[in-house]
Design a protein around this nucleic acid. Structure first.
Lengths: 144, 144
DNA sequence: CAAGATTGATGGTTCAATCTTG
DNA sequence: CAAGATTGAACCATCAATCTTG
């Protein structure tokens, strides 16, 4: 079992710190505006991209890095608030399609106002476009 | 209110993805070995560095990116398991010092076995030392 | 039995209110 | 009143068990 070098550990710590700080800034902005957490945004964005057809719950697990039951509970909350509806699959009786409502599209728009501004504050204002490209490329290596 | 460029948004998404994947790998390894979550490790490491004198709870808020009540509850759990003890401050009757126990030092050691190996797997094996340096430098810009 | 999804119970986080001391 | 810390209540995440359909 190989242990990490100091350089590797430092990189991990900086990654956790940078993510934690940016995330705290963003979540704070959302709660200040009485808006729901980021996970709601992520789900709504996926559904809006999927269009009228919607998406199966299991298709969202990878995209949102969530487990089956987390997707289920998240979808339940958004459905209760009228931001999406669930349609039983015709082909496969076990499954459901999640479909965004107009109210859901509207919420995503409102959330983007605060969310986008904070991404700019936490990332865009601190790095040049060239630095962003370099950073994105290195981070994507970590997700392989 | 300035909105972020596509490049900026991509960088943020890659950051969240890279962090999420690495974190999932690490937490999974800890639960597989019936070990407590990473937040316990972070607290124990800070206390071990602080030595016999210990640290005040409010001093840990910044280091751990936690709120006052989260530090309080986290410390309570570790104290209940015997990994640290709390000493009332002599100078300031309002405060407490958190001091790691030998049992706490031992737990931190055991956690490092799995934790370190996964940092190597999630970061060290995917980037060269040069790439690590570049990545660390860019990430630290984001934490300013 | 396997895959997709849900749910009861449990434990952790968070907010707001509170307590204690400076 | 302010600062350090704690706590009840409400909310969210997680595990394991379960339900339904293929």
């Amino acid at each position: 079992m190989t242990m990490p070098s100091d350089t590797t550990v430092t990189t991990w710590i900086e990654l956790a710190r940078a993510y934690g700080r940016a995330m705290a800034t963003i979540e704070q902005a959302l709660t200040d505006h009485h808006l729901p957490p980021l996970s709601w945004y992520d789900l709504l964005l996926e559904l809006e991209r999927a269009g009228e057809a919607g998406l199966r719950q299991f298709e969202l697990e990878d995209a949102l890095l969530l487990r089956q039951y987390s997707v289920s509970r998240l979808a339940e909350r958004l459905e209760n608030e009228g931001y999406l509806w669930r349609k039983r699959s015709a082909e496969d009786g076990r499954g459901k399609y999640l479909i965004i409502t107009d109210k859901g599209k509207h919420l995503r728009q409102r959330m983007w106002q605060g969310y986008g501004a904070k991404i700019e504050e936490a990332v865009g204002k601190k790095l040049s476009p060239g630095q962003c490209h370099t950073l994105s490329a290195l981070l994507s290596e970590l997700s392989r």
